Amino acid sequence: MMKYLIGLTGGIGSGKTTVAKFIEAKGFAVYYSDIRAKEIVNDNSILKSEIINLLGDEAYDEEGSYNRKWVADKIFNDDTLLMKLNTLIHPAVKEDFEHWMNIQQSKFIFKETALLFELNLDKNCYKSVLVTADESIRIARVMERDHKTYSQVKDIIQKQMSEEEKAKRANYIIYNNGDLESLSMQTNVMLESLFKDL
């Protein structure tokens, strides 16, 4: 069976996971790259060793769990270190995704990932979907969710690819300013359009 890979992305606080849940509820297979990455850094013993070699023992806590906040603080202003860490994590996630995709029975496969365009993963996708929202709304969501300050969230957003650049590359754009009914309707329209394109 021919499978069509759809990339689903959005910046921090955009609500791309909410859209992914809507898609999943419709019966489509969704791979949550960001969630799987958080699991893989704990489950993959070879990857754990590589991360410790790169960052030091503090990359994992006393229980052996990935010390996410410590790592984030360490790499935030060090682009070289961030790139080295990504070259360890991304291949592991890619391998995990390919194994997952091979066992799916859906015609349409959705891959939710924050770095779809940054890593040029959209080149491997049939179509791409961007979930976006006003920056003020995104900042407020992340401040509430992650207990970060305004300036901390603003710094994260400024390090990500701009919404304008992402919008140029996306085939579909879903606006998520907080109205779940509108979000559900836009998701349905996007799915219907996908079927028409084939």
Rank of each mutant, 00 (worst) to 15 (best):
M2P: 12
M2H: 13
K3A: 10
L5Q: 05
L5E: 10
I6V: 14
G7H: 05
G10F: 08
G11D: 01
I12Y: 02
K16H: 11
T18H: 02
V19D: 01
V19T: 07
A20P: 04
A20I: 12
K21T: 13
I23F: 00
E24T: 14
G27A: 05
G27S: 03
G27E: 01
F28Y: 15
A29R: 13
A29N: 05
V30D: 00
S33C: 11
D34A: 12
I46W: 04
L47Q: 09
I51V: 14
I51D: 03
I52C: 00
D57I: 12
D57N: 14
Y60Q: 05
R68K: 15
R68P: 00
A72G: 10
A72M: 04
A72I: 05
D79V: 14
L85A: 10
H90Q: 12
V93N: 01
K94Q: 05
N102L: 01
N102I: 07
Q104T: 11
Q105N: 12
A114S: 12
A114W: 03
L116S: 01
N120S: 15
N124G: 06
C125V: 13
Y126S: 14
Y126V: 10
Y126M: 09
K127Y: 12
S128D: 03
L130S: 03
D134Q: 15
E135I: 15
E135G: 04
R138S: 00
I139V: 11
A140F: 07
A140W: 00
V142H: 04
M143S: 03
E144I: 14
E144N: 15
R145Y: 03
K148I: 07
Y150N: 14
S151T: 15
S151F: 12
Q152D: 07
V153I: 10
K159N: 11
M161E: 06
E163Y: 08
E164W: 07
I173M: 02
N176Y: 09
G178V: 08
G178K: 10
G178S: 07
G178Y: 10
D179W: 09
S182T: 11
Q186W: 09
T187I: 03
N188F: 04
L191S: 07
K196H: 12
K196Y: 06
D197F: 14
